[in-house]
């Protein structure tokens, strides 16, 4: 820079500097018990986030569609078995025989694609949607804090993932109870358990599938931090699910299947063994945890270092 320019830059600094306003001193430095307060405000932001997610028509429509599928499945099954032709096997056939089995059938049907799509929409939109709309800059200037906001966004997506799972299970359970005989549940391994235990096993499988959706949410959230176009992050996440499903169907790529997230989602049927196949469930949860940790770190690294130019 030239000296001349420096001269101008250091232009006459004025006698007219206005005194600092009283507000500068008249404000208590910090509220008492900052830790408790920080925790409280975190839940407040999460509450705001959940309010947005569960009031947004798009997200409610997805929940509605997911609730409708088990009903349709149940009604179809009822009509089919009324003819008493048989021909369907495994978990689906079992659903016709017992009211609780429709829940497992619905989960295993929807977890392959439809539930992951719903979770991808919410998690993929989480950061990219705010960036695209420009609201992200105002949240961060508020200041929401990047790590704090990302944690809220992730927890919100996790809650939505569990909500999706619970809605499917609940719709299936109600439909099953309405259309099919209530009684002791015959498991895949042939043993029979009482209704109460059947319900407990449904609860366990909801927890397991919800954890699987939470892992997917971390993946979609990581994608979401890389773009300002939410449809891009959503599509990337859905494509990943579809491609994984295709790859694991190819027998020659057997060795790869273990590394693919969707491979583990259907393992909730471990609860239909006797005794419950806790090894399979545990292994699945470990994979979900690894996925969440890996992609959560990617999302964090990206989001905390990113220039917000939208």
């Amino acid at each position: 820079m030239s000296t001349a320019e420096t001269e101008i830059r250091r232009a006459p600094e004025p006698a007219t500097i206005v005194e600092a306003g009283p507000s500068a001193e008249g404000r208590p430095a910090a509220a008492p018990a900052p830790v408790a307060r920080a925790r409280w405000t975190f839940w407040r932001l999460l509450g705001s986030e959940l309010g947005l997610t569960f009031r947004r028509p798009r997200n409610l429509v997805m929940l509605g569609v997911l609730a409708a599928v088990p009903v349709l499945l149940g009604v179809t099954l009822r009509l089919m078995t009324a003819d008493d032709e048989g021909g369907v096997g495994g978990i689906i056939a079992a659903a016709a025989g017992n009211s609780l089995m429709l829940t497992f059938a619905s989960l295993s049907f929807l977890v392959t694609l439809l539930m992951p799509v719903a979770v991808s929409v919410v998690a993929g939109d989480a950061v990219a949607g705010e960036a695209g709309a420009g609201t992200l800059r105002y949240l961060l200037a508020a200041p929401a804090g990047r790590t704090r906001l990302l944690a809220v966004k992730y927890l919100n997506a996790v809650v939505y993932g569990f909500a999706v799972t619970a809605v499917v299970a609940l719709a299936a359970l109600v439909t099953g109870l309405a259309l099919f005989p209530v009684g002791p549940v015959t498991l895949l391994s042939g043993t029979t358990v009482p209704v109460a235990e059947g319900l407990l096993r449904i609860l366990v499988s909801v927890g397991y599938v919800g954890a699987g959706m939470a892992a997917l949410a971390a993946v979609a959230l990581a994608f979401s931090t890389f773009t300002e176009v939410s449809i891009g992050a959503i599509a990337a996440s859905v494509v990943l699910v579809v491609v994984s499903q295709v790859l694991r169907a190819v027998p020659q790529l057997d060795g790869l299947a273990g590394y693919l997230l969707p491979t583990w989602w259907n393992d909730f049927d471990g609860v239909l063994r006797s005794p419950v196949d806790t090894a399979a469930l545990g292994e699945g949860l470990l994979v979900f945890g690894a996925y969440a940790l890996l992609f959560g770190s990617v999302a964090w690294a990206r989001f905390t270092g990113k220039d917000i130019t939208s």
Binding site: A31, T41, R44, L45, S48, Y138, L139, A142, A144
Partner: peptide
């Protein structure tokens, strides 16, 4: 406005 207020950790709810 409530949404952005919730993002500010110092804003009293």
């Amino acid at each position: 406005l409530r949404r952005f207020d919730a993002a500010d950790p110092t804003a009293p709810a």
